Computed example of a mutant assay.
Amino acid sequence: MVTQDQLQNNSGVVYYKVDLDDTLSMKKRLSRVRSEHSACPMDVLTIDESVIDLEDKLELLYEPVEKDEDVVYMVLEGSMYVDVEIEEDEWIRMQLERGDLVVIPKGLPHRCTTTPKNFVKIQRFCQKQDPMIQG
């Protein structure tokens, strides 16, 4: 078990608890995160028993990845695990539930999976495109 401060100090991951029932508070938090990380909503992903080839999809999500931009996840419903690798083969597991929002810094290996309930609905965010670079 690590504290939020230890998590941030050891990995750079930033964690927030968002009150999804308080629309004003949620909008303020999302606005701040979006501004600080140049992030905009990308999609909403639901993983549950109705997903075709669920086991294959879960296997794919569990493969460690490193992104060249910050990764932002917010759990809208259900729960999931997100693991981050802080050193070679040394992982920290976070259990995220409704209202949890994490920012995983670019270049940090991470992987995801569901809890035994196999149900999570998450909002994913991506980096904003610079209008001056579009071609």
Rank of each mutant, 00 (worst) to 15 (best):
M1L: 11
M1Y: 10
T3H: 13
T3A: 05
Q4K: 10
Q4S: 13
Q8W: 07
N9W: 09
G12T: 10
Y15E: 08
Y15W: 12
D19P: 00
L20A: 04
L20I: 09
L20C: 03
D21T: 05
D21Y: 05
D22W: 11
T23Y: 09
L24V: 13
S25W: 00
M26F: 00
M26Y: 00
K27E: 10
K28T: 02
K28W: 00
K28I: 01
L30A: 00
R34F: 07
E36V: 01
H37Q: 11
S38T: 12
S38N: 15
S38L: 15
A39L: 13
C40D: 11
P41K: 10
M42K: 14
M42G: 09
V44I: 08
L45N: 07
T46R: 15
T46F: 06
D48K: 05
D48I: 08
V51E: 06
V51F: 14
D53G: 08
D53S: 12
K57R: 09
K57P: 05
L58Y: 09
L60I: 13
L60D: 15
L60R: 13
Y62G: 06
E63I: 08
P64W: 06
V65F: 05
D68S: 11
D70E: 04
V71P: 03
V71H: 15
V72C: 05
V72Q: 14
Y73N: 08
E77M: 12
G78Y: 01
G78N: 03
G78D: 03
S79V: 02
S79Y: 00
S79W: 01
Y81K: 04
V82F: 03
D83W: 14
D83G: 05
D83S: 07
V84Y: 02
E85F: 10
I86A: 03
E87P: 08
E88F: 01
D89P: 05
I92W: 02
R93M: 02
M94K: 01
Q95A: 04
L96M: 07
E97G: 08
R98E: 09
R98I: 02
G99I: 00
D100W: 00
L101M: 08
V103E: 01
I104A: 04
P105H: 02
G107L: 06
G107T: 07
L108W: 02
L108H: 03
P109S: 05
P109F: 01
T113L: 06
T115Y: 06
F119T: 11
F119Q: 13
I122W: 01
Q123E: 10
R124E: 15
R124D: 15
F125M: 11
F125I: 10
C126F: 08
C126S: 12
Q127S: 04
Q129K: 11
D130M: 14
P131Q: 05
I133T: 15
Q134S: 11
Q134M: 15
G135Q: 08
G135N: 15
